[in-house]
Design a binder for these strands. Structure first.
Ligand SMILES: [Mn+2]
Ligand SMILES: [Mn+2]
Ligand SMILES: [Zn+2]
Ligand SMILES: [Zn+2]
Lengths: 140, 140
DNA sequence: TTCCTTATTGAGAATGAGTCTCACAGGTAA
DNA sequence: TTACCTGTGAGACTCATTCTCAATAAGGAA
C-alpha cells in the first residue's frame, strides 16, 4: 500500500531512483497530516523539524510522489498548488468556505456518474476531473 | 445588457472610471470571438489590429471587465488564466479533450442542482463552482 | 475652447511559484 | 580504494502577472 512505511523504497526502486534521507523526510512530512498544504508550507515544516532540504528537492520529490499516487496535487485557483497525502486513496472532491477558508471533502457517486454520462453524450470518457464548490454558510 | 456597445461606458461610469480607447479596444477584442484565450493572445490580437496598448493595461482592463461580468476568467490548471466574453451570460462548464485540446461547453441542470444539494448537506450554499472534465474520445 | 486636476497609460522593473544548472556530496560496484 | 554516477543545495532563471512612476489624456470648469 501507498501508506505503509516501506512503500517509498518500492516506488523509488521501480523508478530507478535512490532512497535518500531527503526523500523520506519529505514524504514523512506530507504524510504527517491531512492538510492541503502548498510546497512552501511543506518546506518550512521540514526545516522546522531540523532537517535541511532545499526547495528544489521538495519540488522534485513531490513530482515523484504525485506520479506514484502517494500525493495529490490540486489547484484551487490561488496561483500555487496544494498537496495532500493519498493515505487511503479514496477519491473525494473539495468544498472551500469563502468565509473561513475551511476545506471540506465530499464524495458523491451520483455526481461522479453524472459527469461520465455528460462526457459520453459528447463522445468522450472522463480521464480526470475537477469539482470545486466555493461556498458560504447557510443562514441559520 | 452586457453585450451592447454602449454598455462599457455605463460600467465605467458606475465604477467612476474614465472611458478610454484602450478600454474599448480591449473589450472589443475579447468580444470579437467566443474563444477561451489567455491575456497574451488577447494582447497580441489587439496589437495586430494596429492598436497600441500595453500588457499592463490589458490586465488592468480585464480585471474591470471580470468584476462587471463582461468577461469570465477561468483556470484550467495551465499556469495562466483564460478569458471568454459573457455575451449571453448563460452559465456553462467546460470539458477539455486531452488529445486535441478542444474545449467543449456543456450545461446540465441536474449537476447544478446536485452540487447545491451537496453543499446544503454540509450546511453551506454554493457561491461559485468549478467543474472541469478532462476527457478523451470514446473508442469507436 | 482652453485650462486644470487627476486618472490612465506604457515601459520596464518587480514579484513569486516553480524549474533549471552545475559543482560538490554520497552511494554503488568492482 | 578507485571510478562512476545519481542526488542535492544554492541560487540563477522563467514566465505570468503586478507594480512603479513619469508622461499623457480625459473631462469638468470657466
Ligand atoms: Mn482533500
Ligand atoms: Mn466557455
Ligand atoms: Zn469527483
Ligand atoms: Zn456549472
Amino acid at each position: 500500500m501507498n501508506q505503509s512505511n516501506g512503500a517509498l523504497k518500492d516506488i523509488l526502486r521501480k523508478e530507478g531512483l535512490r532512497y535518500t534521507n531527503q526523500r523520506q523526510s519529505i514524504w514523512d512530512e506530507i504524510r504527517s497530516n491531512h492538510d492541503h498544504r502548498d510546497a512552501e508550507d511543506i518546506y518550512i515544516s521540514i526545516r522546522n523539524n531540523g532537517v535541511n532540504v532545499s526547495r528544489a528537492t521538495v519540488y522534485r520529490t513531490i513530482d515523484v510522489l504525485v506520479k506514484n499516487r502517494f500525493v495529490r496535487k490540486m489547484d484551487l485557483g490561488e496561483g500555487r498548488f496544494r498537496y495532500e497525502p493519498r493515505l487511503d486513496d479514496k477519491h473525494h472532491d473539495h468544498m472551500v468556505c469563502e468565509e473561513t477558508g475551511d476545506i471540506i471533502e465530499y464524495f458523491n457517486q451520483e455526481l461522479e456518474d453524472l459527469q461520465e454520462k455528460i462526457a459520453n453524450e459528447f463522445g468522450y470518457t472522463v480521464v480526470r476531473h475537477v469539482h470545486q464548490l466555493f461556498v458560504k454558510p447557510l443562514k441559520k
